[in-house]
Computed example of a mutant assay.
Amino acid sequence: MPSLRFVVKALSTEGVPPSEFARTMAPHPLMYQELPHDPEYQLYNDRLTPVRFADVTADEMYWKVRREVILRHTGELPIEFVGPDIDREAVGDRILEVGRSFGMIITSAQVFRARRIEAGLLNAGSDFDRTVTPFEAGFGGFVDFDKNDFIGKAALERADCACRTWGLRTEGGIAQLGRAICRDGAPVGRVSSTAWSPFLQCGVAIVRMDGLADGPGTQLDVESYDGIMLRGELCTLPMYDPDRLIPRGRLIDIPDQ
């Protein structure tokens, strides 16, 4: 059988007999904005996310984000529209209408995921959860034991301070989510976020290792989405820009390709 990929397509149910397979999960409220672009959806971390649009390539979307969006947290208050009385479609349409004059386009989740992984921005719920300490997630520098007692302080004082969360580069393919990192055929870590990087020209991932001995520079076998084994190497996060000059606005020499 040739190599195949399977996607979810949004099709009209008008005039079609009811089917138990009509919809697998509720759509995002602004998904209608994607429909004119003939989107393809796939499941990622149990979420239905767009991966392709008919009128823009994955590379074009990635470079739009890579050149024009700075991923950072500056402490500003976000603007969020919530509540049953909010006309979400009107708000979303207005944002797109104004944004077009600035070159705004709709991009798929996968290009933001690739950029997030490159930048070392962890996603709560997948890259870390309540079972992971700040040290294991690489957040040890934010733990201030000089503060007065806080929830979890006593447990953290007893915890190992070593990091178990790293980046992963794979050549020739994308790592499978889950227990896909192996040594001598035995799983030794978990892939929690994964994507393809058009900038680095390799698969990129955020992983959490079982043991403390595996760190940057360690080479391991990684199962891919195609079912083949790839060679991967652990690396530090972020994967480039180690001084974090890009999110601080100090590095603006962003490559064209």
Rank of each mutant, 00 (worst) to 15 (best):
M1C: 09
R5P: 01
V8H: 06
A10E: 03
S12H: 01
E14T: 12
G15H: 02
P17G: 01
P18G: 00
S19N: 01
A26Q: 07
P29Q: 08
P50S: 08
P50K: 01
E60A: 14
R66L: 08
R72T: 15
T74A: 09
E76H: 10
L77T: 14
L77W: 05
E80N: 06
V82E: 10
I86T: 15
I86N: 05
D87E: 12
R88E: 13
R94D: 11
G103P: 08
G103Q: 11
M104A: 15
M104P: 00
R115P: 01
R116F: 04
G125S: 07
D129M: 08
V132G: 01
G141N: 11
A154C: 02
A159R: 03
C161S: 08
R164P: 00
W166A: 03
G173Q: 08
I174Q: 11
A186C: 06
P187A: 09
R190I: 15
R190Q: 11
P198I: 10
P198R: 06
Q201M: 12
C202Y: 03
V207A: 03
M209I: 09
G211W: 03
A213K: 08
T218A: 15
V222I: 15
M229W: 10
L234S: 02
L237K: 01
I246E: 14
R250D: 11
Q257Y: 03
